[in-house]
Nucleic acid binder design. Structure first.
Lengths: 253, 253
DNA sequence: GAAGTGCGTTGCAGGATATGCAACGTTCAT
DNA sequence: ATGAACGTTGCATATCCTGCAACGCACTTC
């Protein structure tokens, strides 16, 4: 591993907390100011860091562009999107697409029905991994030892009284999800929000992504939402088929 | 400037084009495979690149999270958002917020009325700089020599017959925009889309951002859209006032 | 089935390259 | 006017990165 690059990259999460001046960056990195300066300059030339008018540094524009291109190049997302949109048209609720990557599950697409407000704020954001239905599906597919090790390392914040409380409960839930091939989150993240989710599988049968339908229970009860399960599963299967190359676009009902 | 970091960062835009294997990365960088490997490993440890199942590398998840945090920490965006939402409620059209940074103008917020589809796809994306109304406002505020130099360097793609054709025309338009304090894009980017935009200024009077209202002319004609100009300008001024009032967090505590 | 090809990976020696130091230029507050 | 805080520069040292060559592995070819 390269020390110089390592230090330079450590600056990014540091700046993500908010703008910082040279001294602060140098301190946090544990290097001399002149060293930090050269690293920041290099980051700056690549547009990853921006120098605002008060001379402090913050994350730069290129970062957005990169993240943008990255998300647009995900083929699962591209394949899934029309299916998600169609599902949204039929049921009217919010539809999510998420993938597992490097100890995180994150939303990579979303189609929402009513509220345009802050829609972007979730795309690319890690999900609440211990409670989200899509997270359960992705993690349930990990090999057993890895799954266990991972569950042990997690925090289990009690978002609501129905949040997953600890590792054993989580592992038990994952086992059930793995068994039944779908998952729910009934008020585990926000009291009034329920989700049903289904897995999307690659050609080898491994879960490559998961999709969900979410709705507040002022609109539909959890039971009513569950009646959508067959539709959600069919959609997920259609995406799986198309992604793994077996099926073409037509055979979704 | 640090060579090692420079090389490492050059990998990112390369991967943004699509997944690549080690050999390809090494070739494009002009370094030995073993060197590329070590750089990629370091990027990997920081989550900026991901190694997919076929062993090829692509951009990683942390990139999204970083971009996410970065955009959420922009104080202009935070201040402006409620104003944009309110404007959207009143007129029903798409509302954009954009900033100039390092030779690019990019959208940092958007409130859309009807079509939830692919909403995120524009946030963080560079705008069509030669035609977009918000771009004109940002660039018109640059000091004259810089503005001229910049205009000379640009490409002038003819998106439509009404796109800005070349540097002289662009500079002339910028001068007019600067004069009148607002800008339009009447079918310069997409034939049927019109925009009106107004600048947001900091305490020193410099343009720090620009906002616009866009609508397809099947919904409202360009003339009708122009009747919104006073409302747009009032909104922009309100944001300017609030922004320059408590510019940084420290002096408002 | 054996030999060949392409790919990622490892350890190492040499030297390019990053590092910390000390000194200077500014800006701002006292 | 004086001092402090901060960013910036040039430079000598040695650290850390580089390219090489060899290896393991998977997959293709004859």
């Amino acid at each position: 591993m390269s020390q110089t690059v390592d230090r330079a990259l450590s600056i990014l999460p540091l700046l993500a907390e908010g703008p910082a001046d040279l001294g602060r960056v140098a301190d946090r990195l544990g290097v001399h100011k002149s060293t930090a300066l050269r690293l920041l300059r290099t980051l700056h030339e690549h547009g990853l860091v921006y120098r605002q008018s008060d001379q402090r540094y913050r994350l730069g524009a290129r970062l957005f562009a990169l993240a943008q291109e990255a998300v647009e190049n995900l083929d699962i997302r591209e394949i899934a999107h029309p299916h998600l949109a169609r599902l949204n048209e039929r049921c009217g609720h919010t539809v999510h697409l998420a993938v597992y990557e490097e100890n995180e599950v994150l939303y990579i697409d979303k189609v929402e029905s009513r509220y345009p407000v802050r829609m972007y704020s979730r795309i690319g954001k890690p999900v609440a991994i211990t409670v989200a239905a899509v997270a359960k599906l992705c993690l349930a597919d990990l090999p057993e030892p890895e799954r266990r090790a991972f569950a042990e390392k997690l925090d289990y914040p009690m978002y609501t009284s129905r949040s997953t409380p600890n590792a054993p409960a989580f592992l038990k839930e994952l086992a059930r999800v793995r068994e039944q091939g779908w998952a729910t989150d009934l008020g585990g993240h926000e009291e009034s929000i329920n989700c049903v989710a289904a897995p999307i599988r690659g050609a080898d049968g491994r879960v490559v992504a998961a999709m969900s339908v979410s709705a507040p229970n002022v609109v539909v009860t959890a039971d009513e939402l569950l009646t959508l399960l067959p539709l959600v599963r069919r959609t997920a299967d259609a995406i799986s088929g198309e992604y793994s190359g077996r099926t073409s676009v037509k055979d979704s009902v």
